[in-house]
Amino acid sequence: MTVHGPVMPIWRCGGCDLPWPCPTRRRELRAEYADAPVSLALYLGAYLIQAAEDMPWAPAGALHRRFIGWTRQPPDTQQRGTATMPTETEHRQTG
């Protein structure tokens, strides 16, 4: 069992105190669900819903990228940090 689980309701990693899912947990989840990407997305989608309830101030797009968006990227192109604010381009597209 991993020590990199979510600390709720702040959604920080219990192992490294980074925003959850942290890079370590992402690698673990990728390995665990290597043959089941849809199951991984469903699993993380459930956490996304909980996080959205705990953090109503967080932009939906940022939460989506943090919890689900990284799953479609090859492991070597993942970003280390997790955005919490939309970029200027995203803001223009939605605003």
Results as ranks from 00 to 15, higher is better:
Pro23Glu: 09
His64Ile: 03
Cys22Gln: 04
Thr87Ser: 15
Gly14Leu: 00
Gly45Val: 12
Asp17Phe: 01
Thr71Leu: 14
Pro6Glu: 00
Met55Lys: 14
His4Asp: 02
Leu42Trp: 07
Gly69Met: 06
Ser39Phe: 02
Gly14Glu: 00
Tyr47Ile: 02
Arg26Ile: 10
Leu63Ser: 06
Thr87His: 11
Leu63Val: 08
Asp76Met: 13
Ala34Cys: 01
Gly61Arg: 09
Pro59His: 15
Pro9Arg: 09
Trp20Val: 00
Asp35Pro: 01
Glu53Gln: 14
Gly61Phe: 10
Asp35Thr: 15
Met55Tyr: 01
Asp17Pro: 00
Arg80His: 11
Thr94Gly: 01
Met55Glu: 05
Gly45Gln: 12
Gln73Tyr: 14
Thr24Arg: 05
Cys22Lys: 02
Val38Thr: 15
His4Ser: 00
Leu18Arg: 14
Arg25Cys: 11
Ala31Met: 05
Gln93Ile: 12
Ala46Phe: 04
Pro56Met: 08
Glu28Ser: 12
Leu18Lys: 12
Tyr33Pro: 04
Gln50Asn: 09
Leu48Glu: 14
Glu28Pro: 07
Ala52Met: 15
Arg25Asp: 04
Pro6Val: 00
Pro59Asp: 15
Glu88Ala: 14
Tyr47Lys: 08
Tyr43Leu: 03
Glu53Asn: 13
Gln93Lys: 07
Asp17Arg: 07
Gly69Arg: 03
Gln79Leu: 13
Trp57Gln: 14
Phe67Gly: 03
Ala46Thr: 10
